[in-house]
Amino acid sequence: MRPCTPVSLCLAAAALLPAAPPAHAAPGLGACAAPDDRRFPLTTRIHGGPDSYEAGGGYGVWYLDLTNTTTRTCADIHPVVVLVDSRHALTPAQPRLEFYDGTRPQPHPVHFETTDEDELVGAFDDGFPGFTVGPRKTVTVKVRLTLTSEAAPNEVTADAAVVQRRGDDGDWVGQSNDYVFRIHNDASPTPGPTGTGTGTTPPSRAPRLPFADELARTGLGTPGAALAAAAVLVTGGALLLARRQRRRR
């Protein structure tokens, strides 16, 4: 399977999803496997979001497309959103992110945690059993985001890893494009421009961490091994690995 990058995003995906009791999946609801090891089975795309948010203002709506490129049903799918801000000033309490699962009118909250890499990471969980994406089908997840009035002027990049949870483990099955947006706050000076919010990944943008090949060699089907290898290479990995181990005890 194609490596998940950046490594810290993959570490966070495994660490933030709480362990679930092993389930006896129905036929056709097993592992979501791509035709080759160079592609993820789920094509993942963020689109439709505004280029800017006013701190203390209303919600901006965007969408996350999960497209199953395989002939098998992919169940128990959990996106994990990562926010990286250029000023390293965004705190977990400032972004208010919610998602809709299509089964109830009220959205689920996404709770963020901070990694040692100054990223905010939040899983689409909240007791939610996960999305199911049929063969060659697309599930579009409605997401809304607002920033509290304490958020400073900033530029933020949002992207998502997608995890298929399997009992107390999981596989990385998708990774989105970047969604870049600005935070405005009339009460604070605005930093100089560093880019625009296009909702796409610039072709020249390199992964934030350079260890994707090392992670791929550990085997993405065994997240425990991937976590152990990446923790040696990534500053924030030890913290996330420790969290995962504590939750398994």
Rank of each mutant, 00 (worst) to 15 (best):
R246N: 11
R246E: 13
A230P: 00
A33S: 10
G134D: 10
D186R: 14
F112T: 00
P6K: 12
P79W: 05
H108A: 03
Y53R: 01
G28E: 12
G57D: 03
T115D: 07
G167F: 14
T146E: 02
G57P: 06
S188G: 02
G58F: 07
P22V: 12
A238D: 09
P210C: 12
H108F: 14
A228F: 08
D37M: 14
C74N: 01
A25W: 05
R45Y: 09
D126I: 05
D65A: 15
P95C: 11
A212K: 08
T5E: 05
A231T: 09
Y100I: 00
V7D: 05
E54R: 15
N177L: 08
P50V: 02
V163E: 03
G219L: 13
V232R: 14
R72I: 00
A20P: 00
R166C: 01
H108D: 04
G58V: 04
D36I: 02
P22N: 12
G122F: 08
H88W: 07
T5F: 14
Q175M: 09
W62T: 02
P41Y: 08
L97K: 01
R72K: 13
G219C: 09
A212T: 09
R208I: 00
D171R: 15
A160S: 12
L240H: 03
N68R: 07
N177Q: 10
P18N: 13
R246D: 06
T67A: 15
V84L: 03
T235R: 15
R166S: 05
A123R: 06
V80I: 15
Q94W: 09
